[in-house]
Nucleic acid binder design. Structure first.
Lengths: 123, 123
DNA sequence: GTCGTTGCAAAGCGTTTGCAGCCTA
DNA sequence: TAGGCTGCAAACGCTTTGCAACGAC
């Protein structure tokens, strides 16, 4: 059975309050404000469990370690700024995917990542 | 200046003849048919150079090491089968992305990955 | 002969795991 | 008090790097 520990609460809180996807080390850093002795292994173990429970979604970026965001938001995609490295959330999804599928293929999910320059960096 | 070695030729050939994205170990395996003594470090070094030259494109999959495919094909995306793990190439791109962008953002590129079941696995 | 390239082994990085002690229920 | 949870350190898988030998030009 699942127990309620200070570590688990701190990790959840870090992800909930971030408002953007966080890497494992960022989660550690933020959660250590609540639980100073927190270890990185515990962060990974809990993130893994949260992802399995679908309470957290991993966000993969080419050539970078994954980041994690709280689930439960509306379907959305991300925009990675090539200059500052920040990952932005975009609203909605205009993609019409079915015509791309070969005959007999079943679509379950999709991921879309845009890159370019964010408003701040394109000046 | 860039030299013409048997290793380099074998690695290029492996990627050119594969017809699908290959992982680093798959490249090693195939290229060793031409150059038995080939080492993994050489594969990584050459792939890195080819990617820098835009002769090869890395394909990132969530939770997996990257695969690589020869560049120069038309713009396309991929479909990952959840059952057999095979990565398929899809033709074309129906995505209309500009409306997703917040004001001031500049779009440079995008990546799209579909997943589901391929024709063989959905029976 | 020069110097880019190679194979090997060691190091690096992010992540996972084994283990003994801890602490929630 | 049982057994899930934790911190630590060691192990892991993939990738990069240091180095001395090699070989293309």
């Amino acid at each position: 059975m699942q127990r309620d520990t200070a570590q688990r609460r701190a990790i959840r809180r870090a992800l909930d309050e971030a408002g953007r996807p966080l890497g494992a080390l960022e989660v550690l850093e933020r959660a250590q404000r609540d639980v100073p002795g927190l270890g990185l292994a515990t962060v990974y173990r809990n993130i893994k469990a949260l992802v399995a429970d679908k309470a957290v979604t991993p966000v993969e970026l080419p050539g970078q370690p994954p980041r994690f965001e709280s689930a439960g938001k509306d379907h959305h995609h991300h925009f990675l700024c090539a200059a500052c490295g920040k990952l932005y959330e975009l609203d909605g999804c205009l993609v019409e995917l079915k015509p791309l599928l070969p005959r007999g293929f079943q679509l379950r999910a999709h991921e879309l990542l845009l890159h370019g320059l964010c408003a701040a960096c394109s000046k």
